[in-house]
């Protein structure tokens, strides 16, 4: 009897292993995986939030530097600044323009 029972049980197990998996297990696995993916994406997006913030901070810093450089450029290009700089460099305004008189062909050999 015992031997038969054992044999029957073995057969039953073997039919389960080789047959279809219970739907409950599939649902469990599905929810387990979905939960894992959800947690992963949640964590990833949370981390990305900090990364975005860091990038935004960096962008802000660069934008600020760019702004400062543009202002500096405009100040240096200011004609009043150029006038003042040339005055400090002892550069004077030209009083008379002398033109080179063209004699003969434009390209001349010396």
């Amino acid at each position: 009897m015992q031997g038969m029972a054992i044999g029957r049980n073995t057969n039953t197990t073997s039919s389960k292993v080789h047959g279809s998996i219970k739907p409950g297990v599939l649902v469990f696995i599905f929810f387990f995986l979905a939960g894992g993916i959800y947690l992963y994406s949640l964590n990833a997006s949370a981390v990305q939030g900090y990364q975005i913030r860091e990038v935004e901070t960096e962008m802000g810093k660069l934008r600020k530097e760019n702004e400062q450089l543009k202002i500096k450029e405009a100040e240096l290009k200011s004609l009043y600044y150029i006038e003042e700089s040339s005055r400090k460099s002892n550069m004077g305004e030209f009083k008379e323009v002398s033109y080179v008189v063209e004699r003969g062909p434009v390209a001349m050999r010396r």
Partner: peptide, 8 residues
């Protein structure tokens, strides 16, 4: 507010 050209 900044006016790079000064009094211009």
């Amino acid at each position: 507010r900044r006016y790079p050209a000064g009094e211009l």
